[in-house]
Design a protein around this nucleic acid. Sequence first.
DNA 1: CCCGTATCTGAACACGTGTGCATGATGACC
DNA 2: GGTCATCATGCACACGTGTTCAGATACGGG
Lengths: 331, 331
Amino acid sequence: MTGERRVTAMDVARGAGVSRSAVSRAFTPGSPLDAAKRSRILAVAQELGYRPNVLAAGLQGKGRSNLVAVVVGRLHNHFDSDFQAILMEGLARRGKWPLVVAGDPEMIEADILNVLGFPLDALIVRGGSVSAPVVDYCAKLGIPLVVSGRVMAAPRVDCVCGDNAGGAHLAVAALQARGRRRIAYLGGPPQLFSDQERRAGFQAAMAGAGLVPVAEDSADYSFEGGQAAALRLLARAPGLDGLFCGNDAMALGAIAALRDQGRRVPQDISVIGFDDISIAPWPGIDLSTLRNDAAATVAELLRLLETRLEDPSGPARVVRIPTRFIARNTH
Amino acid sequence: MTGERRVTAMDVARGAGVSRSAVSRAFTPGSPLDAAKRSRILAVAQELGYRPNVLAAGLQGKGRSNLVAVVVGRLHNHFDSDFQAILMEGLARRGKWPLVVAGDPEMIEADILNVLGFPLDALIVRGGSVSAPVVDYCAKLGIPLVVSGRVMAAPRVDCVCGDNAGGAHLAVAALQARGRRRIAYLGGPPQLFSDQERRAGFQAAMAGAGLVPVAEDSADYSFEGGQAAALRLLARAPGLDGLFCGNDAMALGAIAALRDQGRRVPQDISVIGFDDISIAPWPGIDLSTLRNDAAATVAELLRLLETRLEDPSGPARVVRIPTRFIARNTH
DNA sequence: CCCGTATCTGAACACGTGTGCATGATGACC
DNA sequence: GGTCATCATGCACACGTGTTCAGATACGGG
C-alpha cells in the first residue's frame, strides 16, 4: 500500500529534485523546460504512478472542463440503449467525458440538480421531461442545455428530435395503401412528448385521409404492454384491420397477441412500429416500421453542442431528423 | 447572459451580506448557523443560481469524490446494454457518479489512462481486457479496480463473473438429454475471456459425456455473424443435430439460417444460446438459453465495490454468478 | 573582460471550497 | 453584577494545479 493520499505533483518534484512548477511544465507540452529534466520528471512520475489531477487543473478557470452530463431515463428500451451507446462513443471521440445520470424518474430530478455541482461544459437530456428549475439553473449557470427526443421552447436551449408527425403520416399512408380503413393507434405513455406528437400526427393524418380511428389505447412501450393493449383493442374493435404502434417493442407484442388470437399478420391485420430497432429486420420478425435514425440524431446533437459551445449566446435551434418508412412484412 | 464566470460562494456572500464561510456552512447540514441567516443565504443562492462546486469541495481531500469510472466496450450487444443500464441505476442509487469510458478498443486504452486523471473512487471495467499498465496505475494510485465478465489474478483486484464453464456443462447436458450426439460449438471472438471459458467448458463437458464435437467455429456475437457461421458449420458437418452458441444473438441468427436451409428447430436440430436477453422469451423467439443474470452480477459488483472501499487493502475476491438453464422451445 | 540577450527556473498567486481556531456576543446561573 | 458556558461568526489555512513574473544562469558578441 502506497498510503491513502493520492500522489501529487509535489511528491514527484521531491523525487526528481526539482520544483513543483517544473513538474507541471513537464506535463504541459508547450512549456519551456530542459529536455533532459523533462524526461527525468516523466520517468519519476511514471515510477510513482502520478497523473495530474484534472479537477484541480480545471479549477484554474481557463478553458473547458470537458465534462458533460448525460441524462437518460430508464434504459430498458432498445432504441434508447442504441442511442446511448452511439452518444457515449461520439462524446468520447470529441474528448468529452460523459457523466451519466440515470434512475427512477422521481430520483432523477434531484440528481440532475446535484450533477450541476460539477463544472459541466453542457447538459444533455434524452427524452423525459426537464423541469423548469433545471432549465432555470442551467441558464443562470451558463451551462448549455441540449435536449433530444423532445422540443422545448426556451432561450438558448437546443433540441434535436425525430419527425414524429411525419412518421405518423407515413404510417397512415402505408396502411391506407394496403386498403386498411379500420385503423387503431397504440401509443406510449401519454405524458411523453414522443407519444403526444405521434398521436397528434396520427389523428391529423387520419382526418386528412377522411378516416376515423376505430380505437386508441396506450401502454408502456414494452412488449408485454403491447400484448395486453392489443387484446383490449381487439375486444373494443373486433373489425380492426390496421394498427399503428408507438414503438417497435409494442408492435412486436401486439403482433404476438394478434396471432395468438388467430389473426394473421399481415394478411388480416397490418401492424406498423416505430424506431426500427436492430432486431426489426431479423428473419421471423421482419417488422414494418419507421426508422428513427439514432446515429443521425446523435450526429446532429453533437453538432448543436459544438455550435453552442462556440457561441454560447446564439439563438436556440431545433433540428428535426427525417423519418423514413421501412416496408417489411407486417403491413 | 450573466457573464462567463461561474457563480461562486463569494458572490452569494456579497449578495447576502455575510462572510463566505457562512455560505459554505449554509450548504453543510451539520454546521452551526443561525436559521434565519441560513434561509436568507439559500434564498440568495437560489436567486443567483449558485451550487457549490463539488470539484473544489472534493479537493479538500476529506472523504470520497463519489466519482466512479465505468469502462464498457462497445455497447451494441443486448446483454451489455442491459448490464450497463442496471449498473448505472445501481451506482446512482448509491450516490456514485458514473463517468463512462466507451469507444473503439484501440481508443479506449488511452482513454482509461486519461480518466485516471480524475480523483476516482474506483474503476469498473466490463468485459474487455485490462492492460497491465492500467492495473499498475490503479495499484499505485490506490484506486480500487473491479472487473466484471472476466477473472484476473492481481492483488486487490476484485472480479465478478458468470459461471461460463458451468453454463456450458448445462448446455451439453440438455442437448444430451434430447438425444443429440452430433454437437457443434459456435463461439464468440476467441480473444474474449467469455469465449475461452465457454469453449473450454463445452469441450470438457463433451469429453465427460464421451462425445466428440463435430465442429467448432467463431463469430462476432452478432445475429449476422451467427447466420453466416451456421451455414459454415452446416457445410462442414451436414449431420449436425445440436448447436451450442456463445450468446443469444448468434443463436437466433443460427436458427434463422438453419430454418432457411430447411432444417426444423428444434425437431431436427437443437439450438441453445447464452445470456437470456430480454427478447429471448418472446413468443415466436422462445429461445432455450442459459441465464446470465445481469441484475445479480451488478448487485455482487456493487457489494464488492463497497467492501473494497471499506477496506482498501483486503484480499482480492472473485465471485461467480451461477448460471441457470432456461428450457424453452429451441432445443 | 563586460554587457546584452535568450532561456531556464522557482517563488508566488489564483482557482473555489470546507473546516479548525480564535474571537466576540449572548444568555444563564449564582 | 459577575462569571462561566454556549454558540454563532469570521479569519486563515489547506487541497493540487496552471501560469505569471522576476531572478538566475548561460551564452555569444564586441
